[in-house]
Design a protein around this nucleic acid. Structure first.
Lengths: 201, 201, 201, 201
DNA sequence: AATGAATGAGCATTCATTCAT
DNA sequence: TATGAATGAATGCTCATTCAT
């Protein structure tokens, strides 16, 4: 996929980044199909041709954005759980961090579903997905061993958490007047859903 | 929006329905943009012109499918909770019924996200959404009053439930070797997330 | 390649034929690459979209023209030699008929060379070529058996005849003030090149 | 047409030559239109801008290659006939030399036809053509005077010879397992086609 | 009701050429 | 000389929609 070792000058790198970010924003707002190269370059006031100097196709661009979004999320989660010992708390922290990350950095997540349906992007999304789920499953199993997480199908739990999280990030947070409250409630819901202890936390 | 006052004959109604169902199937499989009128009519071996005799536009067709999917889901939920008294159990039953319904009847749900992003369909989906959430909120509040549901933001809980549910329906059920297990685990997760009692159910 | 059993009405068939002929003429004049769909449809004063109702691509169109040109030439040759017994005379008649055919019906032959170089069309041209050469080789071998054609590499002779012929058709006939003279001279040259007898004919 | 008065340094001249040769090879392989400046410069690992330092346009570059190919052919022919007295033998020698020359030095000849069709290059090719034909006509007329070449239209004979030759060079030699045999057969065919004597040579 | 034909705006992509450094 | 960046016109093709019959 990576063919060209170009884009050497600072100006070039800046332009590429600007195009990438503009594209991410428009993709997030309109979806893959409704986003046109024309619109992307128009926001940067450059010619259409230059797009193809920096990206080999619309498809490749979208793939890059997708991959970056996923790996950014994983990094955010990894950073959030560092130094926390209890698996339940790690999961809570990861959820919180994920929601914050998605909210701040990536309206892009909205396009995941559309991408999932396609031949080309489905694989990318599914791969990222699998990794994210795997991360959570590891925590859950550790929690079950320690007794803080109720016994059950760890993978299904991870999916449920992910589903809740991605839904809230996309449909609630962007419109919520008190996003922090929404985040806290979501964490509470998920933790209650997997905890072995009565309620509370 | 436009309710066609035509299509009086039985043959006409049958044709319209056939087109609608063919369209739903293709939309679900390929998404809104990648579905073409050409393909829809091809499956029915009719000319493209005839499509515009039965539907005024691609948009209108999709809207109709969307609305039907949502109202079908609501009907399924309503039927499922009938005769059950405890709100927690009603919710559990509704989740179960919803998952079953989506699984059987509506790959269409996969296109919701794509629709949400658009100017035109976003409203439709959001409206249906609001109703579905409202249904659940009513149950939750009743449960809080009765003490079976833990105190908290009922709307956020409803959202969390809906998020989990729609995620599982789309990404887990279609690929799961034991869908019934997946449904049961999902119900368990959600109920645990809102229940005021220790664990169980 | 043939997918659609459409183009059913007389008007449709007429339009397709008109587009095909217009395309053949422009291809012949400008070559494959320099011919645009825009120009083809412009000559018929129809929209660009309609081109794709009748042809699935520029490539397919060109292939069809190519195949038709080749098979037309073979038919012309076959018709010309009918009823002639002596192989040498058959060849002479075939050359004459070919030149006449190409001159009248097919400036298209000019594009053969361009086509030969391409991945896609090379095969088509080569196939037709092979058949045409095979036809001539058969005559030559018969002539060698009967003693009217000098012994030698029949295939190379056939190639030489074909080369002379196609060159004359493309570069001489279109500009010659006396095409019949040019045709006669070409026949004379080829016959002399393969004949076993002194000069004459 | 434009003779560049620059490119004084040895390095510059070398670069120009390298680009020219790379271009010739690609033109020959892919044809004029399918050859891009990008590809040409890529083979030399230089930037696209530099191309326009050495050549004023793609067109000019191609014209230069065309002219060089033609004059090279004429030189090869002239060298081949030197010291031979009989016109028939001179022609035979010229054909042989031409075929060898084209085979070794110039896959470029394949692009002649494509060039012929264009406004811009047609003139160049035709001019070179005329000279080559003129050379042969002179020999033929001398041969007719001396009685070794049969009476007839010398120009048409020259064309026929050229046609055979260019066809063989392009379509037979590159694929022939015994090119020398093919060359000999071609010479035999042409000589027989113009000779006044029975057969032989 | 139904069809084949037709439209036209729009899209991703390519490429010869020019420019600033 | 040399480069990476930029331009802009053009191209093949798609597709929702309309029309004449």
């Amino acid at each position: 996929m990576r063919i060209q070792p170009k884009h050497r000058t600072a100006k070039g790198r800046a332009r590429r980044k600007a195009l990438l970010e503009a594209a991410a924003e428009i993709f997030a707002r309109k979806g893959y199909h409704s986003t046109t190269i024309s619109e992307i370059v128009r926001t940067q006031k450059v010619s259409k041709g230059i797009f193809y100097w920096y990206f080999s196709s619309k498809e490749e661009l979208f793939g890059e954005i997708l991959r970056e979004a996923i790996s950014g999320l994983r990094r955010a989660q990894a950073a959030a759980i560092e130094g926390i010992d209890d698996p339940l708390e790690r999961i809570a922290a990861a959820i919180e961090a994920s929601l914050a990350y998605i909210r701040l950095n990536m309206p892009m997540f909205a396009v995941f579903e559309e991408a999932l349906g396609t031949e080309t992007f489905g694989r990318i999304v599914k791969q990222g997905h699998k990794k994210l789920i795997g991360d959570t499953v590891a925590q859950l199993e550790e929690g079950m061993r320690r007794g803080t997480v109720r016994r059950g199908d760890a993978e299904m739990m991870a999916h449920a958490i992910f589903g809740t999280m991605s839904y809230v990030a996309r449909f609630i947070l962007p419109f919520s007047p008190q996003p922090d409250h929404a985040i806290a409630e979501t964490v509470r819901f998920c933790v209650a859903g997997i905890s072995s202890k009565p309620k509370e936390r």
